[in-house]
């Protein structure tokens, strides 16, 4: 399993190097968004309106952090379960999103979108929100502050650790891992 250090925004050439099971460390900016923010983004797209963020080349991190203590950029900030964003994700990949970060399996539509639009789905460790917060240097709410923990934030990360679950070639770490260790 290879290890990659990538910087956002990323190009298709970078995505092409990433294979399921590889470790990646992301540096740069990520956007955060979960259930409610995704619904709002997709509603805007449906209405033909402009989005508050440009997703081209970017990664969206599915997270609703705890509030930051004074002097800290963010609180505990681990991934939330990704399947709840499955119905929204393909549209965002079509618009040029390159990656999403969460935990848990995606449906076939998302996996197809990764192949079609050259994207990846990656996981960070669920339930390790305190540890993960150490890779986040800045956080700023840029849309939907009324959603509280669900607001869209732009966060600056350094060596943010993730594992590639689904690559653009159809690879799926969850399926491969389970197959390797399953006993009937």
């Amino acid at each position: 399993m290879a290890e990659h250090r990538i910087t956002t925004p990323v190009s298709d050439e970078v995505i092409a190097k990433l294979k399921s099971g590889d470790s990646i460390f992301i540096t740069g900016y990520l956007y955060t968004g979960r259930d409610s923010a995704h619904k709002k983004l997709i509603d805007l797209i449906t209405e033909g309106k402009e989005l508050p963020i440009d997703v081209k080349g970017q990664f969206i991190y599915y997270v609703g952090p705890t509030p930051a203590r004074p002097g800290k950029p963010i609180g505990s900030a681990g991934p939330t379960t990704s399947y709840r964003m499955d119905s929204y994700a393909p549209t965002l990949y079509e618009l040029g999103l390159k990656g999403s970060i969460g935990k848990g399996a995606r449906n076939e539509e998302v996996k197809d979108a990764l192949k079609k639009y050259k994207g990846v789905y990656v996981a960070s460790v669920g339930g390790a929100g305190a540890l993960i917060s150490k890779s986040i240097e800045e956080a700023e709410i840029i849309a939907y502050p009324e959603l509280g923990p669900e607001a869209i934030r732009r966060i600056k990360v350094k060596d943010f650790p993730c594992i590639i679950i689904n690559d653009m070639y159809g690879g799926d770490l969850y399926e491969e891992g389970k197959k390797q260790f399953r006993k009937e």
């Binding site: 609703g64 609180g75 505990s76 460790v125 669920g126 390790a128 929100g129 305190a130 540890l131």
Partner: peptide, 28 residues
Amino acid sequence: SPAGKVVFEQILENSRIAREEKLGLCQD
């Protein structure tokens, strides 16, 4: 599993940080 062992290490490291810094073990 090597990947599984890494996850366990991170869970334990996370619990040390959460305790010391009074941060949620999980954001949820």
